[in-house]
Design a protein around this nucleic acid. Sequence first.
DNA 1: CTTTTACCGTACCCATCGGTACGGTTCCGT
DNA 2: ACGGAACCGTACCGATGGGTACGGTAAAAG
Lengths: 229, 229
Amino acid sequence: MSALAPSDIAEIEGQGDSAPAIGSSPDALSDRQREVLDVTLELLIENAAALTMIAVARRANCSKETLYKWFGDRDGLLAATVRYQASKVRVEPFEAETIDQTKLTDVLEGFARGLLSILTSDMSVALNRLAVSQAEAKSGAPLGQIVLQNGRFSTGPRLKPAIEAGMRAGVLRPLDAEEAFRDFYGLAVRDTQIRILLGDDLQLSPKDIEAEARRATAQFFTLYAASAA
Amino acid sequence: MSALAPSDIAEIEGQGDSAPAIGSSPDALSDRQREVLDVTLELLIENAAALTMIAVARRANCSKETLYKWFGDRDGLLAATVRYQASKVRVEPFEAETIDQTKLTDVLEGFARGLLSILTSDMSVALNRLAVSQAEAKSGAPLGQIVLQNGRFSTGPRLKPAIEAGMRAGVLRPLDAEEAFRDFYGLAVRDTQIRILLGDDLQLSPKDIEAEARRATAQFFTLYAASAA
DNA sequence: CTTTTACCGTACCCATCGGTACGGTTCCGT
DNA sequence: ACGGAACCGTACCGATGGGTACGGTAAAAG
């Protein structure tokens, strides 16, 4: 079975035992496999430099051979780990319904809060460091895209409908939702994420995050509130 | 030759013998040493994963032994490289003098332009990737701090005097210069840097950068212009 | 009961790379 | 001219870690 294509986990799934053969689902991980990926995340957060195949195997009480069988190679394990973590953070999109100034404020503040909470978490920092350091390699699986999906693109589409609803409701002036979203991102995150990634010991308490979220939201309204009213 | 007049940190530790005095801060680079560091930067930009001691030695036509003698170990070489590049980007601080709306606009736009140009450059991306990936290691030389110094702290202190001058001149409303600076940073950079670091193929033409700088500056004035009078 | 399958644990192979040693060469001071 | 310092090039060493092979075991399949 050594003929498998490394770093392409899609087809390895075929040989899974207990994993139900769900054809359409992109990932079909067994409980045991999820267990391994949790261990990988654990090690990654503890010390990414010590994240070696043997280390994963030891802590997960599995063999390296199984690791290679399931995930192809090291990059495959990493990609599966990142994707697995991303799959755990799925959120439901925003439902338009009634929107007004107060409601939109709540949505924006909640979004900024969630974003800052995620980006400052150990998990996010570890995953982003990993993805950044592997971003230039020509590996077939761009971890960076997955991380972006998780940290930005998965939250962006959730927020943009709210912005557009606010615009239609006359709360916000006409705008480009994508640009407005990026502005809000900048107002909320500023240099926080890059500083943390670079090792700056900048930590935000929940109270700080709350304050940042409020400030960013207020500033966003200053930029984009319907001027007429 | 011409030693660039490093008046700041000029004391040389005499002639270090065979003993590799690690750490310290022997910042007195010979031309040859600078040559080696330029090669290191070159390799770093080309392919950070292939940045090995032997690769540096080969392209620089020097011996590994010399590398170790000069820089102690691999981390020493990396730290020296990052510090060397940072030293090349020194800029003169802002001189207050007369300030008005137009002048401040120019300063802000110029700052945003420079910031975006740097952060999207191959050099900055390579150095930031390196620093991020090493940020968690307990290495004595935190590359991240040096990179931050270069990308933010060295430009921040340059901008803050201008902001404060604008505030005193009544162009801007009273504000906290540090917070205002971080806001401006967020407005200018938004998610651009992290997306590039994560491998997103987002490239800004000079025209794009110019537009981004104008937009960020206009937004900054919207947030911080002296309201009425 | 036997066979198969999946898996664990361990040993093993091999390439790479950090770091060191050494011989040879150039250059500088004396 | 002589000696030494600095340095180049190469060879070498040891550790690490990705990837493979194999024997043993438990449980399901037949």
